[in-house]
Design a protein around this nucleic acid. Structure first.
Lengths: 196, 196
DNA sequence: GTCTATACTACGATAGAC
DNA sequence: GTCTATCGTAGTATAGAC
């Protein structure tokens, strides 16, 4: 296996996925044609089909990349030594996603309702985020709030589920509502208070 | 204007929209063809196009009906004399939406990211729900919690935004995650506690 | 690996009879 | 108003040259 060739393949793959992402932001996953992606990427149809077997695969891979970026960012944040509070965690989640990402995220949810592969990816990544949040909250509840280990664990699970729900609501808000930064800040501060 | 004819038109319209709804649950808005809707409704293509100008219009109308049903149900609930708490409100919102409705709701959000008409409908209806919740919470904060009018108003606005976010998160949960009733009940009870 | 050109299909929408 | 039949197009995927 030539290593350089693999790196080049990965580069092409990213080139295609980033072009697809821009197309999805503009026209949505459904109304984006493979021709649109070829035009946006500067590649040809033939080239794209050597890297992806079908349009569905491009759609899934684009969403998967997006989901994984969010999960990785979260893992990095809770991995720091600072031991952020649940409120700070929520704030970081909110700040970490752009409007374009929120838009394509919503499209991915819509696709996931009828595409089992997409649904599996969404559920797996979302569960991953929730578990990372739960694990962090458990530590936080013990270290900062002085809870006992067993109650911290069960409280952290519920807390994580709630934080994820608010996060998901915030994604809807960011994608569809032309809210001002000030209004978003109020919203996040309010939610943070509730989980403080 | 013949009245019976209008009623008949409305019946056909509902016949088409209900068929479309079933198709969207099965295959999604994007992958449902007009032929699918004709087959499901028992009507013909020609007939459908006398009632709707395009497929996009059918998609928008189906989503609009779904959104309005949720808004009307909420208005009815807060219109009762019982003065439910925010927690009970959330519980009612959660119970009022089926998994199929949640699925198509998610598809509508995805469409709304690139279809201005759909986006307008979603935003308007969601704002309507939030306002209805805020108005109710304001009354509740004054009557049950004994808050002063001015602080109740500002607190109610924030509370309503938070409740909507959790509600939206719950829609995602209901549509994509095969959660058990018990787990959902825990989730809702936990959220309700937080807003009690 | 990448391109151009194209085969094949599926879909949205309409025409015209009844 | 409703049906059947069909037109035109758009879009996915592939074949074959380079």
């Amino acid at each position: 296996m030539p290593k350089l060739s693999q790196a080049r393949q990965e580069l092409r793959r990213q080139q295609i996925l980033q072009a697809a992402m821009r197309c999805f932001v503009r026209n949505g996953m459904g109304r984006t044609s493979v021709a649109d992606i070829t035009a946006e990427s500067g590649l040809s149809a033939g080239s794209i089909y050597t890297h992806f077997a079908s349009k569905a695969e491009i759609v899934q891979a684009t969403a998967q990349d997006l989901l994984e970026r969010r999960l990785t960012a979260l893992a990095g944040f809770v991995g720091e030594a600072r031991l952020p509070s649940p409120a700070q965690l929520l704030r970081h989640l909110a700040d970490g996603i752009s409007r374009d990402e929120a838009r394509v995220g919503l499209q991915a949810w819509g696709e996931a309702t009828t595409d089992p592969v997409m649904c599996g990816n969404v559920v797996a990544t979302t569960d991953g985020m929730r578990d990372a949040i739960a694990a962090h909250c458990e530590v936080w509840l013990v270290a900062v709030k002085g809870h006992e280990a067993s109650v911290a664990r069960s409280r952290a699970a519920g807390l994580a589920a709630q934080l994820m729900a608010v996060y998901q609501g915030l994604i809807v808000r960011k994608a569809l509502f032309g809210t001002t930064d000030a209004a978003d800040e109020t919203f996040i501060a309010d939610a943070a208070d509730r989980f403080a």
